[in-house]
């Protein structure tokens, strides 16, 4: 029969402290979607191939489907739900650039793409095209052919740089 042992885990999700109980087999993906309702975290493959489940762990992208929940004890987790900006309709510059550049079709990879772009731009405000491609290489998109996404990240980088100059 199945075991019922729960493990207590504390972490910060999108700025809010969370105390949860999980099974040893649970991944962060399971916890975020089944227990915490952050539905922007998507699933596309059976583990670590498509990248649409990406979240930021202490500012760096990880595949939530490969991250055991018990391992994130004490960490800071960010999902797209936590991304807020001061732009139009509370959008972050990256979100705005994705919206205006047609950088999403079905939108299923969009949360992951935006989070990966954010992790990149926070470390490297002025990335080259190759650096953008490297940063996004862990997420697949079947609709756009990627070009509009790269363009959106370029534009977002520019918008963010302008803002910090002001």
């Amino acid at each position: 029969m199945l075991n019922e042992t729960r493990i207590k885990v504390r972490f910060i999700l999108n700025g809010e402290s969370r105390n949860i109980e999980c099974m040893a087999a649970d991944t962060l993906f399971d916890t975020l979607r089944d227990s915490l309702g952050t539905m922007s975290v998507k699933q596309g493959c059976d583990f670590g191939g498509c990248g649409v489940c990406s979240v930021l762990l202490d500012g760096r992208p990880v595949y939530s489907c490969l991250m055991p929940t018990w391992k994130v004890e004490g960490s800071k987790i960010e999902t797209l739900e936590g991304l807020k900006g001061k732009e139009l309709m509370n959008l972050d510059a990256i979100q705005q650039a994705f919206a205006t550049n047609f950088a999403q079709q079905c939108g299923y990879c969009t949360p992951a793409m935006i989070l990966n772009a954010k992790a990149l731009l926070e470390r490297n405000p002025n990335p080259s095209v190759d650096q953008i491609k490297d940063a996004l290489s862990g997420v697949l998109c079947r609709c756009t052919g990627y070009m509009p996404i790269v363009e959106a990240v370029m534009q977002a980088a520019m918008m963010r740089r302008k803002k910090t100059q002001v």
Binding site: L80, M89, A99, Q104, G107, I114
Partner: peptide, 21 residues
């Protein structure tokens, strides 16, 4: 007119609902 997609805001904020959700 290259109108911005009417569902783009839903999608860039992660609010678009898919069957999986």
């Amino acid at each position: 007119v290259p109108l911005q997609k009417v569902d783009s805001i839903l999608k860039v904020t992660g609010k678009a609902l898919y069957t999986k959700d």
